[in-house]
Computed example of a mutant assay.
Amino acid sequence: MYNAIKKLFQYGTVTVDYPKKHIKSSYITGVPKFNYDKCMHCMKCKNSCPTGAIVLSDNDGQNGKVPAVNIDECIFCRFCEEACQNDAVYFSNIFELAQKNRNDLRAAPLIIQDEDVSVLDYELLGKQLKENVKKFYGKSLNIREIDAGSCNGCDYEINALSSPYNDIERLGIQFVASPRHADMLMVTGCVTRNMEEALIKTYNATPSPKLVVAVGACACSGGIFKNSYAGRNGVDSILPVDVYIPGCPPRPQALIYGILKAIGRS
């Protein structure tokens, strides 16, 4: 007991105060950005991208097509930055990237056609979901994490949420062992063939209303395994996704931001 008290006075509080206080650090690798004044349109950045995340877009009102990033496909590998000889590509410190709509993460929007559901229906469903989220998950949340074929990078970051440094339980959020006790499913990986059935069964075992969060580039779009014979191109090809958290892997604070965004607390 004496040693515990001694350590407390010696090191003080180690828990980070995020999201009340934003984290500023030069060590944070965030979303890639382009300086179009330096860009020579050589497309070396596009050709070096292993996931095809860099596309041509009418970004920032420039004349003609310019390179831009589909953040849901980006694995933050820095190959584009290394390939650019004009320093037109650089990585920012912006890590709060989670979005409820996947198209908000893309320079080239996905085209989704559904003739059976009108825009008005989508708006009504979205309003009802937002009200239910605030009602049921405003103060507490139980999460079941599912590895659907990841490299474990995202899983390590999720595990770090329970450490003394991040201490996610201070926000009324905790992880549970059974989907039957869960309010939210956090899914990592591109959803391999072997995990597809298990993911669906876990989703069906989770009581409604429930939320699904896709964690990492693989879960958002398939990532480096996109269009592979062995898996799907992300979680939304199997289940409805409420929030996408890009990154490879996303840092713990990015995960906290995405979780709070899902339950209407950010």
Rank of each mutant, 00 (worst) to 15 (best):
G153I: 09
T51W: 08
M1P: 07
L124S: 02
T29S: 08
N159G: 15
K139V: 05
Y156F: 06
R251N: 01
V16D: 15
V133P: 03
D104H: 08
L255S: 01
V243M: 12
N70A: 01
V212P: 11
L239C: 10
C154W: 02
A177C: 01
Y18G: 02
N159H: 15
D183F: 06
F91Y: 15
S150H: 03
A83C: 04
G189N: 09
L120D: 14
V117A: 07
D183I: 08
A148T: 07
C77M: 04
I23Q: 13
P207G: 06
K44Q: 10
N227H: 12
I146M: 09
K38Y: 15
K33A: 10
K100G: 15
S228K: 02
K261M: 13
E197S: 10
I146G: 05
G12F: 11
A177F: 04
G153E: 08
T202H: 03
I112G: 00
H41K: 15
D116H: 06
C248H: 04
V66P: 03
G138K: 04
L171P: 07
N142A: 14
D155I: 01
P240Y: 11
G234T: 09
R106K: 03
N194G: 10
A230Q: 12
A108C: 01
E96F: 11
D183P: 11
S163Q: 15
N63G: 13
D242W: 11
G138D: 11
Q128Y: 05
A262P: 06
Y165W: 06
E196V: 02
V241S: 09
Y90W: 15
N166S: 06
E131G: 02
R251T: 00
Y257S: 02
S26D: 15
L199T: 12
Q85W: 10
S26W: 07
G216W: 05
G138P: 01
P250K: 05
L171V: 06
V16E: 11
P109Y: 12
G149N: 05
L239Q: 14
Y36H: 14
R144H: 13
V133F: 02
N132S: 12
A214G: 07
K226W: 12
K44F: 06
S150Q: 06
I23Y: 12
V119Q: 08
N103Q: 08
A160N: 14
F79P: 00
Y2M: 12
A107N: 05
S118P: 14
N63H: 12
L124W: 03
N63W: 03
C218A: 11
Q113P: 00
L171Q: 04
R251A: 02
